[in-house]
Nucleic acid binder design. Structure first.
Length: 855
RNA sequence: GCCCGGGUGGUGGAAUGGCAGACACGACGGUCUUAGAAGCCGUUGCCGCAAGGUGUGCAGGUUCGAGUCCUGUCCCGGGCACCA
């Protein structure tokens, strides 16, 4: 049933059809269908208190158009949405107001859901998920247990931002210019016990499998750079004082070994204490203190000026026995390679800068073509390197590495920039780790009855006591968050959970995971009861978003994160659309988890996202990024109120190519709104009945029929290519013709509405119904074009003389070159340019162009 | 500094190596109207009354023909940044 409006009243029409779709469950994806499947996924939103931002509907409109289009083409479409709802803002809100983050989160979700529904997206709401729902995060915890069991999760001391004044750990985004965002207090780096995931074990596969995915090249390159593979060699340098042992360095350029004139250790390098001579001790100590006080950011920001200090020690170059001084400098990082380098100032810019500053020798060992200006990092041949002179550097690299390996003082190695993933937060609002820390004896008891423990126990040592990480059995999941008195951190760097003694300090039944507060004493029921302390860290927001695309396949499953049948039928998303800001972290982390699940045999493919597309950012009217402080934020609700969601959807797509960054321009909205009004006006008379020019019997102009078929062809191609802006242009061109046509066949009007339906679904449904279309326009099969109608008998031929456009005319299809030249001679615009000239050459593209080169 | 994108009318943007500026916005003129809004009909890159010339950041090149391909250069945006 259509609405009763006589005019294009989107205020009636849009809610009307949204209710219709909801009642009819129009967008339900069937888990067992004979149809081919199409899975199109949005990056699910964090439901912030600010509500939907105009950037959300941009990408969501694009995927919605595709979802509706694919349904019309006969696909069983999975188009889901959910909420990435753990996270810092909800926790900060809780700290401020004392309300439970869950309550605040649910309010925000309610608001987001309302806004998204008002946009008319064709989500299957029966598959809605929420990462903070225990039924969901049960499986986040389950995946963590799989990682843990396979030795991919461990505990280590890692530096975090610590604010002594607030007595809390801060996230990077809570630290602004070295001060806390709240209060502006000074912050420092402090080591804390953290969970770390061994993503580096997957570095090689994360890199090499990029070749199998259809992603933007720039995103692939960013991931490549982030993984940062480099091939080189580890080389052992003897120290002058043999009793100190050897110094292991990593270099990508072993071929420059003869040019090494000094060594550098990172200030944190464990050998620094031992090899520093007594005279140099005070200077070295002072330097190390200074370096330690610097944050990573400062250390890297001060890139311009090198600093360092001589250790007093010397190392021996393994290829020529040269004695080289060992320096300590913070331009060498402990976290990469071995934390020690051989410095070759002649062929490395940083080493060169350092050598100049500290007056160290520079020895050239690579010569380029002609005069070589140092530092020289280009191609060339090896010089000043007895035994290798004259070799091109890649050959020398190979040969020197082999020779060193033969002597046992070096070997070829591969290094990655990628670090293991810091996976814990000292926060309340995240998934609790299903881990209980127990003593050695209790761990041994558990080992006797559990088969799901890692080969190597995960431990940490505190005040001389070794603590063992005992996982909860899978059957004990989910481990839910306890209610807490305060969302303020414990003050010791632990999360607020540490204050919940009854939850934290427990007796645990090792086989079942049953627990009672330790304060109640050891239960006397049978079982293996061990005394433990729960892990108080929680997981980062990434955890829930690492695998959500799998939960959509089978969201209600209580026995598995998804059934094998659902995993097999739906496979992975055919298209994933989201912002480029996730190009590295989210996509890399999700790929890592997916590969672990693949290795476990629980997902059938090695890569989670076959095809990826980034929508561009929408800037404010002023061309700046939208932000509250600039006051240039656009709220979709306002546009829906003033022009309707069909207009908003069209406008978002009409702004420009989806991938481009583009400014918001409120005046442009009128243009697409007028387009929809025109469509209405041409199909519906002023009294609300079908326009008199719509006819079942009288013939419409042949040009209109032809244009319809051209439009079907173009719009279909453009939806396939995600060229939504030009698809809309094509529809506008057709609507202009619609307006001029005295008679329009009902079928033409209906087919046009079908083309419009994925983009502006509400008005399309309404007009379809009024024009007597059967059922929902969504269930009508996508129109096809008649190729015969598109072939013309005449085509426009363009005449060029010496490459310049001089005229054109309609010529019969199949015109030959000679005939075309005759047409040119007879063309009043072209003929004067041929007068008294000889044609030296003719280039003829049949049906398109005739270019005559004349003299 | 390095790595990616991108520079086309007053604006957003179109253009498989083949008519640069589709489609819109804005502007101007007209029509309708008591008046306005909406609609409709025109015009609208720049120079020129016109014929015509000229034009895709700049300088070259390849080609019968370049916005599109190549080289260099400038500018803007994004990402990364002492990774040995």
């Amino acid at each position: 049933m259509a609405t009763t409006s006589t005019e294009y009243n989107f205020h009636d029409i849009e809610p009307h059809w949204q209710t219709f779709w909801e009642k009819n469950r129009s967008f339900r994806a069937e888990n067992d269908s004979a149809k081919p499947k199409y899975y199109v996924l949005d990056m699910f939103p964090y439901p912030s208190g600010a509500g939907l931002h105009i950037g959300h509907p941009e990408g969501y409109t694009a995927t919605d158009i595709l979802a509706r289009y694919k349904r019309a083409r006969g696909f069983n479409v999975l188009h889901p949405i959910g909420w990435d709802a753990f996270g810092l803002p909800a926790e900060q809100h809780a700290v401020k107001t004392g309300t439970h983050p869950a309550a605040n989160t649910q309010n925000n979700i309610t608001n987001f859901r309302r806004q998204i529904k008002a946009l008319g997206f064709s989500y299957d709401w029966e598959r809605e998920i929420d990462t903070t729902d225990p039924k969901y995060f049960r499986w986040t915890q389950w995946i963590f247990l799989q990682l843990f069991r396979r030795g991919l999760a461990y505990v280590d001391e890692r530096p975090v931002w610590w604010c002594p004044e607030l007595r809390t750990v801060l996230a990077n985004e809570e630290v602004i210019d070295g001060k806390s965002e709240v209060g502006g207090f000074p912050v420092e780096r402090r080591n804390l016990r953290q969970w770390v995931l061994r993503i580096t074990a997957y570095a090689e596969r994360l890199l090499s499998d990029l070749k199998d995915v259809d992603w933007p090249d720039s995103t692939k390159r960013m991931q490549e750079a982030w993984i940062g593979r480099s091939e080189g060699a580890e080389i052992l340098f003897d120290l002058e004082r043999r009793e100190l042992g050897q110094l292991k360095i990593f270099t990508t350029r072993p071929d420059t070994l003869f040019g090494c004139t000094y060594m550098v250790l990172a200030p944190e390098h464990p050998l620094v204490d031992r090899l520093t001579t007594p005279e140099q001790k005070p200077a070295v100590e002072a330097y190390r203190k200074k370096a330690a006080a610097k944050s990573d950011l400062e250390r890297t920001d001060l890139a311009k000026e090198k600093s360092g200090v001589f250790s007093g020690a010397y190392a021996i170059n393994p290829v020529n026995g040269a004695k080289v001084p060992v320096w300590i400098a913070d331009y060498v990082l402990m976290g990469y390679g071995t934390g020690a380098i051989m410095a070759v100032p002649a062929h490395d810019e940083r080493d060169y800068e350092f050598a100049v500053q500290f007056n160290l020798p520079v020895v050239q060992v690579i010569a380029g073509e002609g005069e070589t200006k140092l530092p020289y990092v280009g191609d060339g041949k090896v010089v000043n390197s007895p035994g290798y002179d004259g070799l091109a550097w890649p050959e020398a690299k190979k040969k020197i590495t082999q020779d060193l390996a033969g002597r046992g003082v070096g070997k070829a190695t591969v290094n990655y920039k990628l670090r293991d993933w810091l996976f814990s937060r000292q926060r309340y609002w995240g998934e609790p780790f299903p881990i209980v820390w127990v003593g050695a004896d209790d761990y041994a008891k558990a080992q006797a009855i559990r088969s799901d423990l890692p080969a190597q126990p995960v431990t940490f040592t505190q005040d001389g006591t070794v603590h063992f990480a005992l996982p909860l059995p899978e059957a004990a999941l989910p481990l839910v968050l306890p209610d807490v008195q305060s969302y303020l951190p414990s003050g010791t760097g632990e999360s607020p959970l540490a204050n919940e003694t009854a939850w934290v300090d427990i007796w645990l039944e090792a086989a079942t995971g049953a627990a009672v507060p330790a304060s109640q004493g050891k239960p006397d029921t049978p079982g293996t009861w061990v005394r433990g302390r729960r892990e108080t860290n929680t997981m980062p927001q990434w955890a829930g978003s690492c695998w959500y695309y799998l939960r959509f396949l089978d969201p209600a499953n209580a026995d598995a994160f998804a059934s094998p049948a659902a995993l097999k039928y739906w496979d992975v998303p055919d298209l994933y659309v989201g912002g480029a800001e996730h190009a590295v972290l989210h996509l890399l982390y999700a790929r890592f988890w997916h590969k672990v699940l693949f290795d476990l045999g629980v997902v059938p493919q090695a890569e989670p996202f076959k095809k990826l597309f980034h929508q561009g950012i929408i800037l404010g009217e002023d061309g700046e990024k939208m932000s509250k402080s600039r006051g240039n934020v656009v709220n979709p609700d306002t546009i829906i109120q003033s022009h309707g969601t069909d207009t908003l959807r069209l406008y978002l797509m009409f702004l420009g190519p989806l991938e481009a960054m583009k400014p918001w321009n409120p005046r442009g909205i009128e243009g697409v709104h007028r387009f929809l009004q025109k469509v209405w006006r041409e199909l519906i008379a002023a009294d609300g009945t079908v326009h008199p020019k719509i006819s079942d019997t009288a013939p419409e102009p042949a040009e209109l029929t032809k244009l319809l078929h051209e439009t079907i062809k173009k719009v279909t191609e453009r939806l396939d290519d995600m060229r939504f802006n030009t698809a809309i242009s094509d529809l506008m061109i057709f609507s202009n013709a619609l307006q001029k046509a005295p008679v329009v066949s009902r079928r033409t009007a209906q087919q046009f509405l079908q083309l419009l339906a994925p983009l502006a679904p509400h008005i399309a449904e309404e007009l379809w119904e009024r024009l007597g279309g059967r059922g929902s326009i969504m269930s009508a099969a996508w129109p096809t074009f008649d190729a015969a109608l598109l072939t013309a008998s005449e085509v426009k031929l363009v005449f060029q003389i010496n490459g310049k456009h001089r005229g054109d005319q309609m010529v019969p299809v199949g015109t030959t070159q000679d005939e075309a030249i005759a047409f040119a001679r007879g063309n009043p615009k072209v003929a004067p340019h041929l007068d008294g000239k000889t044609i030296k050459r003719a280039i003829f593209v049949p049906g398109k162009i005739l270019n005559l080169v004349v003299e």
